[in-house]
Design a protein around this nucleic acid. Structure first.
Lengths: 118, 118
DNA sequence: TGTAATGCCTTGAACTTCTAGGTATTGTAA
DNA sequence: TTACAATACCTAGAAGTTCAAGGCATTACA
């Protein structure tokens, strides 16, 4: 019930959704994902590495992501990409999110509950 | 990271937002709020009493809501309504939500990141 | 008489995110 | 050369929410 400094509280499940979405477009590594989310949302959403890495590991454990190690410019990176399971999961999450956002939008906008039209 | 049965995970802060929004339109009591959310969202969002009552108490503690006891048909109800603080809080939450939903929508829809137009 | 609905409430578990650290390498500025 | 920022990985603990599952009491209805 207390104000938060960074992302004020509507974040549940959002990191997972965004990460899956990004990785569906192209394989990326953790540190890159952190910055991609920040830049592509104009810093509206900013998740730290402490959020991204655990989600990546969890998704890989569940078989939704697969990873490969790659060294670029002497830096070792772990690139993640979406599996069939992950793709399905993204579809589910995406639909759920859309339904939820739509429902909330209606309540915020219209507000008055539905009256029978005579 | 596990699938949930009811509201699959995007719910953080949403109950508080919806409750404030409902109470801004008209004073309501807890049990009524539970059903109002369910019915006005066509059961897309369904929060239990175990969610609503703690939120109501927390908001009242913070001065965002005020309550009055009223007996109707021999039933004792506690009606809540929004204070000035609550109204301000609703405005903040509402804007935050809109920004967030908009940012996510862009990532889900467009997807490809912004290229410089030649 | 008994069951469902109304109306209030709390506890404990489960899950996330967040903060704040730690490690190591590369590039750059002083 | 030295120090610092950026890159790149990671974890542990705290904090905050929602959720499930119950309890209590009254009214309506079968």
């Amino acid at each position: 019930m207390t104000a938060r400094e960074t992302n004020p509280n509507f974040m549940n499940g959002v990191p997972e959704l965004l990460i899956l979405r990004l990785l569906q477009q192209e394989e990326m590594y953790g540190y890159e994902i952190v910055q991609a989310i920040r830049s592509r949302t104009d810093a509206v959403i900013a998740v730290g590495e402490g959020v991204v890495y655990p989600v990546l590991h969890g998704l890989e454990r569940d078989g939704a992501l697969k990873s490969r190690r790659k060294t670029v410019n002497g830096r070792s990176r772990i690139y993640y990409s979406v599996t069939a399971i992950g793709s399905h999961r993204l579809a589910d999450l995406s639909e759920t999110w859309t339904n939820l956002a739509s429902a909330i939008q209606k309540m915020l906008a219209g507000g008055q509950h539905v009256e029978a039209i005579p």
